Simulated scan of single mutants.
Amino acid sequence: MPSKKMKRSLCTAVAAGVLSLTVAGLPAASAGADPVVNNATQALERLADLSRESERTTEALHNAQIDLDGKQAAQRDAEARLAADRAAVADAQSRMDQFRPTVSKLVAASYQGARTNRLFAVMVSDSPQQLLDQMSALDAISSETARAVAQFKQATTDAESAENASRASADAARSATEQARSVSDGLQSKQSDLQKQIDEVTKAFDRLTGAERAQLAGATFPPGVDAGSILANLAPGSGSAALEAGLTQVGKPYSWGATGPDAYDCSGLVVWAFKQIGKSLPRSSQAQAQAGTPVDRSQLQPGDVVIFYDDASHVGIYAGNGNVLHASTYGTPVKVDSMASMPFNTARRY
């Protein structure tokens, strides 16, 4: 759930405008729903709670999809290896068939009393040349047969071993895919439940005046800061270029699961900004917290990706002077905010 600091910050921003909203002006909750929201301040707090939890769920959904995609790719690779190993077995069997006539003749000759060793060649030879011819033939038969058998055994052993291993990998990959899909389905169900709760609360906000909604949204930049002042202090770099791209989206609305260009969630904005400079970042805030190069908070530079909360469920782009560009939460647009209102987790440089 959100920190008390976050809730106080959100509530303070709209207190003057929303305290005039009366109980009679709010819709009643349905039977079995959450407790009735009986004033605008409670509505704001409830929405803040639901939005924070919903963002956690959204980012977890993104992370589950990344996991699912990885497991499905592993499954495809395992099945491709399995097909290759089966082809290797078939090739080995084909090569065995090539040498089978030689082996069969040798076996038949031995069964019928033929002698295929050098002593027998000496005993039945009528001349030195015949001896050499017979010994050469015996050597050829022995060598060819031994080679055929050895090649077949080695190829068959290797291919069958690879096939068994690959089959096990394919089975494991399929099992992992099913597990990942189950996780994703569960999170989507939770997200659906949260959306229903959010819908109940947002009905109250539909009654706010335009001025009250503007007060809720707040300023898109901290006092004394604007896009021009941020851009004037940027040093060349890929992160700086991503921040510059992201600043063009200030004012766009927040929407769960959105990646622009009309609306964004937190990780969606970061993905979009870096995509504009040709860099592909992971889709979830948790994955973004694991990639890139770690950066100490004291060494932050504009354009670094900053992750917040213990579960790494919120992310933005550092804008300098302790500020961050982010798609913050429901009801507020993409903006530049002070980082002080959110618990710092880690930072990454891409």
Rank of each mutant, 00 (worst) to 15 (best):
P2W: 09
P2E: 03
M6N: 15
T12D: 15
A15P: 13
A15V: 10
V18G: 05
V18Y: 07
T22A: 13
V23G: 14
G25Y: 08
L26S: 09
P27Q: 11
A28N: 14
A28R: 15
V37Y: 06
N39A: 02
T41W: 09
Q42P: 10
R46N: 08
D49C: 12
R52T: 14
H62Q: 10
Q65T: 09
L68G: 00
D69A: 13
G70C: 01
A73C: 05
D77H: 14
A80Y: 12
A84S: 12
R86Y: 09
A92S: 13
Q93F: 04
S94F: 08
R95D: 15
R95H: 12
P101S: 04
V103H: 10
S110W: 12
Y111A: 15
Q112A: 08
Q112V: 06
G113H: 06
A114M: 04
A114I: 03
L119T: 15
A121D: 14
V122S: 10
M123H: 09
M123C: 06
V124K: 11
S127F: 04
Q130C: 05
L132H: 12
L132F: 13
S142Y: 12
S143H: 08
T145C: 06
A146Y: 09
A148G: 15
V149C: 10
Q151R: 15
F152A: 14
F152V: 10
Q154M: 03
A159C: 10
E160I: 04
A162W: 02
N164A: 10
A165R: 12
R167T: 14
R167L: 11
R174F: 07
S182R: 10
S189E: 02
K190V: 01
S192H: 12
S192C: 03
D193I: 03
D193W: 05
D193S: 11
Q197C: 04
D199G: 12
E200Q: 14
V201H: 03
A204Q: 12
G210Q: 15
G210H: 11
A211T: 07
A214M: 00
A219N: 04
P222K: 04
G224N: 01
V225K: 08
D226L: 09
A227R: 11
G228M: 05
I230V: 01
I230T: 01
L231N: 05
L231D: 05
N233F: 04
L234V: 05
G237I: 06
G239A: 04
G239W: 06
A242Y: 09
L243V: 13
G246S: 09
G246L: 05
L247H: 08
T248K: 10
V250I: 03
K252E: 02
P253L: 01
W256C: 04
G257I: 02
A258R: 14
A258N: 07
P261N: 06
D262L: 03
Y264T: 06
D265C: 01
G268F: 02
V271D: 01
F274Q: 00
K275M: 01
Q276K: 11
K279G: 06
L281V: 03
Q286E: 07
Q286L: 09
Q290F: 07
P294D: 00
V295C: 01
S298W: 05
L300C: 01
P302I: 00
V306H: 02
I307D: 06
F308T: 02
I317M: 00
H326T: 07
H326P: 05
V334Q: 13
K335W: 05
K335H: 05
V336A: 01
D337Q: 07
D337S: 09
P343T: 13
T346A: 14
